[in-house]
C-alpha cells in the first residue's frame, strides 16, 4: 500500500474533538476530557502557587495578592464549573461502566432503544444539577 496520509483517512484528534451530528452524550465526552485536563493543569498551578507558604507569611501574602482581581475570579469560576461538571458527569460514567442504568440485552425491534437512550434520564438529571449548582456558585462568586 502506498505511503499516503490521505489514503489512511483516520480522523485522529479531529475525530474526538468534532462531535458533528452525533448526540448530546458525544459532546459530554469532549467536555469531560477537556474539563479533566483543565483540572489537572489547575492542580499543578495550585500546588505551585500555594507552595509559596513554605517561604513564610510574607511570601504567601504577596502571592495571594497577585492572584486576585476580576480575571482570577473568572478563572476560578471556570475551575468550579469544570469541577462540578466533571464530578457529576463522572458519577454517570462510573455507574454506566459498572453496567448500571443502561438496561440489559433484549430483542431489538423498531424503533431501536440502545444503552445511550436508557441512560438519558440520568444524564439530564445530572446536567440540570450541574446548571443549578453553577447558578448558585455564580451568585456566590460574582454577586454576593
Amino acid at each position: 500500500m502506498q505511503a499516503n496520509k490521505h489514503l489512511d483517512n483516520r480522523l485522529g484528534l479531529r475525530g474526538w474533538i468534532r462531535a458533528g451530528r452525533y448526540r448530546f452524550e458525544r459532546y459530554l465526552y469532549i467536555l469531560h476530557r477537556i474539563s479533566g485536563l483543565s483540572l489537572l493543569a489547575y492542580l499543578l498551578m495550585h500546588i505551585y502557587v500555594t507552595g509559596a507558604r513554605i517561604y513564610g507569611a510574607d511570601a504567601w501574602n504577596t502571592t495571594m495578592g497577585s492572584v486576585t482581581g476580576p480575571v482570577f475570579t473568572m478563572l476560578e469560576f471556570l475551575v468550579m464549573a469544570a469541577f462540578v461538571f466533571h464530578g457529576l458527569n463522572g458519577i454517570r460514567l462510573v455507574l454506566i461502566e459498572l453496567g448500571i442504568g443502561i438496561g440489559r440485552p433484549m430483542r431489538q425491534e423498531y424503533p431501536y432503544v440502545n444503552s445511550n437512550d436508557k441512560q438519558r434520564t440520568m444524564m439530564w438529571i445530572l446536567m440540570v444539577l450541574v446548571v443549578i449548582i453553577l447558578v448558585i456558585s455564580a451568585l456566590d462568586f460574582f454577586v454576593l
Partner: peptide
C-alpha cells in the same frame, strides 16, 4: 471505551456495542 455512545447511536441494526463494552 469512555462511553461516548456514538457507536450505539450510529449502529443500523440496534446491536448496541456500547452496552456490550460496559457489561
Amino acid at each position: 471505551c469512555h462511553m461516548a455512545g456514538a457507536c450505539a447511536d450510529a449502529c443500523p441494526k440496534g446491536v448496541d456495542p456500547a452496552m456490550a463494552a460496559q457489561l
